[in-house]
Design a protein around this nucleic acid. Structure first.
Lengths: 192, 192
DNA sequence: CATCCTTGTTGAACATCCTTGACAGTATAA
DNA sequence: TTATACTGTCAAGGATGTTCAACAAGGATG
């Protein structure tokens, strides 16, 4: 339920700056334990704590929840190189996760029968669209629910509440894109 | 030191949607007291609590910490509704062609054996990426040539010279996205 | 080997957030 | 007036986040 993977994102940012938990804690005015627990997603930090820590990096809060860091100019991504950001049940694989300043997120998604992104709607500003490559999926956007099949597609403003559910008995495969990018490497956000 | 007025911002968003504290609390799965205290800046909410509340508005976290607004258009596109912009040999079908102010172009592409986009330099600024859904394709970007197979992906800056060729004997299917959008309704700019 | 420094993790105590359950104020209607 | 329904606020206590202090693992040094 935590939603955004705060811990993984923070860990990435800290490590990319070559800081130890203790060093970052010192700069932020919190204890190393706090950072350890947050990075393990053992707690959901208060906004004030998180802000103290991000200020020490430094990274703005909105940047933390939206933007992406790191450097890379890789062009080709082998299937096994895609970054898995699913939750163990459904699978979302991100293309070019480490790419700096990506202007969009491209995802290769696999929904087993029964997979459900959950009702908690609305995660990111921007737009998203996708093409159903195999199987079928029930998509709800802003109260409108439809079942899309292979070859069908969707495109909507990501701020509208939305939900994806595989109500069939076969795996559903989708290739989707969203902009601005809303996924950080390594972190599963609940959502869609 | 907080630097950011979480309470006031939340209050604005809630009131702009004409919700009472109790109504919002109910939707978010928290109590009205929580919202009251946050709006008065009497507490600094945990990220998880804040997220629950923002999900109910709905507003994304990054949006909350930055600021923006909303829109709405057609969401679902049946396979036969996609706009064909290919040349009769290879097929490119555009999702949401009529959508005004799209921030990206999403394409469902079919390359028959032998299909070739031709070398095409520096056509448009932006980025493009895709996932190979079926078959295989030879892609050249900035002098680097590779053959990608089902499940592989690519992502590059569109200003780099690039070329797509199906050198195999089976149809290749790709779902791709590019941003900013390089296809307008009614007319294909060349691209790829 | 021991010693020292650093790393990240964890249990118990403490601080803060969050909920429960009230309260007062306003508005509408009988 | 009384009743009902809504609004936002607040005190007390339970739930959760944070600190303190200890711990183990890994490297470097002697």
């Amino acid at each position: 339920m935590s939603g955004f993977n705060v811990g993984t994102r923070l860990k990435q940012l800290r490590q990319s700056r070559d800081l130890s938990q203790r060093e970052l804690a010192k700069r932020a005015g919190v204890t190393n334990s706090t950072i350890s627990l947050i990075e393990q997603n053992s707690v959901s930090p208060s906004v004030s704590s998180l802000k103290k820590i991000l200020d020490a990096l430094p990274v703005s809060i909105s940047e933390f929840f939206a933007g992406e860091e790191l450097a890379n100019e890789q062009v080709f991504y082998r299937a096994e190189e895609l970054t898995e950001i699913g939750d163990g049940n459904l699978s979302w694989r991100l293309v070019g996760a480490r790419r700096p300043n990506r202007s969009m997120s491209l995802l290769y998604e696999h929904y087993p029968p029964g997979a459900d992104t959950g009702e908690d709607m609305l995660e990111h500003a921007g737009e998203e669209g996708g093409v159903i490559v195999a199987g079928a999926i029930e998509i709800s956007v802003n109260g409108d629910t439809q079942v899309l099949h292979q070859g069908d597609a969707y495109y909507f403003d990501s701020r509208l509440p939305h939900r994806f559910r595989n109500t069939g008995d076969k795996e559903c495969v989708i290739v989707s894109a969203n902009t601005p990018p809303s996924f950080a490497e390594g972190g599963a956000t609940q959502h869609h």
